[in-house]
Design a protein around this nucleic acid. Structure first.
Lengths: 193, 193
DNA sequence: GTCTATAATAAGATAGAC
DNA sequence: GTCTATCTTATTATAGAC
């Protein structure tokens, strides 16, 4: 009946990984910030930190993809939908002082050369988000192939935009990217139509 | 006369930060991989790891900006030049098994909330690269303002593309981004001209 | 400029009790 | 399911000799 404990551990881990990355986040900090029984961590995650981080990454990206799917579903025009979604990300980042955003980027870079398990969780997470974007673009008239490559570019520019925004403490970078992605999609649509 | 020692420490640090990030890179590993006297690290970098990382980041981004300036200078058409540069990055990343690329992204994310000194070194580094890109675009007929915002988007998509490439072990993502950036720039040029 | 030795702390993980 | 205690190993940093 302590699903709540496991969930709290995962939520806290996810938040700490986003702000600090993998190696800077200690198990002690996770236990303390989640206000969770000390003995529970290795009970729920027998493989320790690597398993915990993999689960947190997977969970977080599933939530991100689901959020994107719903958000994009509320605006008919795919170009406007993608634009609005990036603008929404910029707004959220601005509200939080540019201290968050790119929830798994740090972990992905840290682990890509050291933990295959975490690397795969990150790769699958990015893939899921990309497929949501691509599906929306297909509904806007793009071919499956073109939608897939554009989704990759959108995903990358968002991720990179968040890296730059956090580093420079300037969420307007994402606004600029939203503009350029809108322009790119409109132009691509004209070229194909 | 041991400028060589200091330089070797910085070069090794730069390489380790790129592959592992900040917290995963220990001073012991830096000393061992650089084959440098153990006593030299705190002699050259009295403020320890934070100073060393800041210097390594600044040096690396100065070199990156200078490389971009020269590379872009060899191709007249700014659109083709940017395209060729991203393709060159994709090729290099492919040759190294997608284990490198985005030399300071991990550090920037890890430090953006914990070390103002490192954060600033990263921000200045990104800014320098962006200005090189913008200057090239201005020569292609873009207004200063438009060149600046496009340079931001290009920089972000490259950085994000490298994050995705490293995570998915697929350097073709950067190729796709090169295509889309070329298309974006061509379209933007037509719209403004 | 460089050395060794060491301080001081924190990390991830495990064992065994309850 | 949870607790405490502990093992082992790493970390950054400093002191003082040479």
């Amino acid at each position: 009946m302590s699903k709540a404990t496991r969930d709290k551990i995962l939520a806290t881990t996810s938040s700490l990984l986003e702000r600090q990355g993998y190696h800077a986040t200690g198990l002690a900090q996770i236990v303390s910030e989640s206000a969770t029984p000390r003995g529970s961590l290795y009970y729920y995650f027998p493989d320790g930190k690597e398993e915990l981080a993999s689960e947190a990454v997977a969970l977080r990206m599933r939530a991100t993809a689901e959020f994107a799917r719903r958000f994009l579903g509320e605006i008919n025009d795919p170009v406007e939908a993608v634009y609005a979604m990036i603008m929404d990300m910029a707004e959220k980042m601005s509200k939080q002082g540019c201290g968050t955003g790119a929830p798994i980027a740090a972990v992905a870079l840290e682990a890509s050369n050291s933990s295959e398990r975490i690397r795969k969780a990150c790769a699958d997470g990015y893939q899921g988000l990309q497929e949501v974007l691509a599906a929306k673009l297909v509904m806007g008239g793009f071919s499956a192939e073109r939608a897939s490559s554009l989704a990759m570019t959108i995903n990358a520019s968002i991720e990179g935009g968040m890296v730059l925004s956090r580093t420079k403490h300037d969420s307007d970078i994402l606004v600029s990217i939203a503009d350029d992605m809108k322009f790119l999609l409109r132009s691509a649509l004209q070229a194909s139509g």
